[in-house]
Design a binder for these strands. Structure first.
Lengths: 347, 347
DNA sequence: TTGTAAGCGTTATCAC
DNA sequence: GTGATAACGCTTACAA
């Protein structure tokens, strides 16, 4: 018989069991597992809990302990296939450590970002994992976090001054470009992704580095920007493949863009990899199911998420300040890249 | 100068502004926007808030108001491409109404499901949106929700007795099958998805209904189960296409399975749609980018998410009990389904 | 071994 | 107009 309307509280349980609230609290709290207690009392309490279907109010608990066991996870857009594994990685280690995760989609909009940041602080999450960019003018905002002892770790290189997990996009992209060059390609175009993205900037840089290292930079490295969608990849590839002497290989900013390029090749009657080689980024599940299978750079997205969460937990544990974890990438060679038409250098 | 260690509280602000905590609360609380107050006082308070970087503690607020402005979102696995748009739909309307969302991945594991349910109740979320199955023995568990005034709406037909948003999978699948039959196919196999999924059961049923209605059910309708992955689709399709006289069309449980079937067709040198027609379910972004483009049933996933959240908001508003919203599906005819080899009935 | 009571950071009800 | 103060549902000294 709960008092009044509303949820059953610790007082209802105490009353039902004929003990004090302190006693009920003791049977529930792991912190007081060591204090001695008559088995009979414990049983009475547990019976009452069961009968009433009592669930302790974690808000009250959190208020007292200054710890909510919640973390915020800020991503640009969960609909972007890149993020779900990352989110899953964060959630898995979070939940296995008793933390719940509050998901925030920002669309890289500074207004939304600061709005969510405020909400997260007000609800006193213990920490925040931020992935993806759009944080141009936001850094100052993170100053408040310190005042509220809110941890933060970034996935990517957009928020310096905080622990972060990253990949070496420059090196990864360079390796992919070198693979193409090794195959004999001389005219390669880097395709797509927003020019403002640090990820894209790094990948474009790695591409340029590879060309330069091979002395292929007398012709200005061809880099075309767009966004991260199939649509963008399709449109760009259509344009790029139009000239009479188009590039023989396309290094795409991600797999979605690569998939768009596949469609463009099909629609212009070009065979992959015979007429044009295509390389992607991310190794999303589709990569092994398109035909030809897609050669792409595997990014350990799930692991980046779980590593980020672990870094956050380390912060909670007081284990040091800024840390930086660089995760390995790997070029997965499949069927979409081969020697250029003619079989060798043609420049 | 916050008292002690820890976050700045309303008392710090009151002290800094030289007013009582009640006054500070009044400038912050929308509920008391109407009470008169000297502009000078308000300014003093606002200045103090700014200077201290004060963020009210929503836990305390929630404790008092019996309302957390949080909802739980329970999905099988965010990595499954079907869910991100749904999640986004929920999050968009949630955040635009001031609610935050706590994401829970269950892997359809009853233990995880009940675990998350408990956590969500303990943190006193105002409501829960559940999508996806695995709830076989869980329904009794939802009884507790009532005791804590926790709203619930289901996406799908697995949790009767609660408001829900659904699609008519039977009708949708039947329409897809009829499309194939209309094209002239007589030997069609329904491919994949877990036999335990109500979604799959419904789609298989619609498939059988279509065959029966066309008098094609003298040959036992061919239905093969697996799971929702490309891998499963690939494996099943390889088997299905092996016989000397294989089906001329594959109705796949979802686009991922269909993509697996694409790969199987390619690897066995069968042309789509010339040798075999393929139809999918979900209309995921890839559908329009594979070649040939994939004929598939579009499911308004995003809208289902936003509708579910709206239903939850309606519950909060006391707007009636169980409601049921059925969202429309649509067969998107693209390039993967055409007349069977020979051009017409061959049975 | 168990109970009493202070206090976590707010809001709401009274007074003044 | 503004200030005390009693809740909200818990945990944790400190008593008993």
């Amino acid at each position: 018989m709960p008092r009044s309307k509303g949820a059953v509280s610790i007082r209802d349980v105490a009353a039902a069991a004929g003990v004090s609230v302190a006693t009920v609290s003791r049977v529930l709290s792991p912190a007081t597992a060591d204090v001695p207690m008559r088995k009979e009392t414990r049983d009475k309490v547990e019976r009452a809990i069961d009968e009433l279907g009592y669930r302790p109010n974690d808000l009250a608990r959190a208020l007292l302990q200054h710890r909510t066991a919640a973390i915020g996870l800020v991503v640009p857009d969960i609909s972007n296939p890149y993020y779900p594994p990352l989110v899953r990685g964060v959630e898995d280690v979070a939940s296995s450590h008793g933390y719940r995760v509050v998901l925030c989609n920002t669309d890289r909009d500074p207004a939304k970002i600061t709005g969510y940041l405020d909400t997260l602080i007000k609800t006193r999450v213990d920490g925040i994992v931020v992935a993806g960019g759009g944080w141009a003018d936001v850094p100052e905002r993170t100053a408040v976090l310190g005042r509220y002892r809110t941890g933060l770790v970034a996935v990517g290189r957009h928020l310096t001054a905080h622990p972060s997990v990253r990949i070496d996009n420059v090196a990864a992209s360079r390796a992919a470009a070198e693979h193409l060059i090794g195959l004999g390609h001389r005219r390669i175009t880097f395709v797509g992704g927003p020019a403002t993205s640090t990820t894209v900037q790094d990948r474009a840089q790695g591409f340029r580095d590879a060309l330069k290292a091979s002395g292929l930079d007398r012709l200005a490295p061809a880099v075309r920007y767009g966004d991260f969608t199939e649509e963008s990849g399709y449109a760009l590839a259509r344009e790029i493949l139009r000239p009479s002497r188009p590039p023989t290989a396309l290094l795409c900013a991600n797999d979605r863009v690569a998939l768009g390029a596949y469609a463009a090749a099909a629609d212009t009657a070009r065979r992959i990899p015979d007429d044009v080689s295509i390389v992607g980024f991310d190794d999303t599940p589709i990569a092994r199911y398109v035909r030809p299978t897609l050669t792409t750079v595997a990014i350990p997205t799930y692991e980046m998420g779980s590593a980020a969460m672990r870094l956050l937990l380390a912060q909670f544990g007081g284990d040091g300040g800024p840390a930086l974890e660089t995760m390995p990438t790997r070029l997965v060679v499949r069927g979409s890249a081969a020697a250029p038409p003619g079989g060798g250098p043609d420049a």
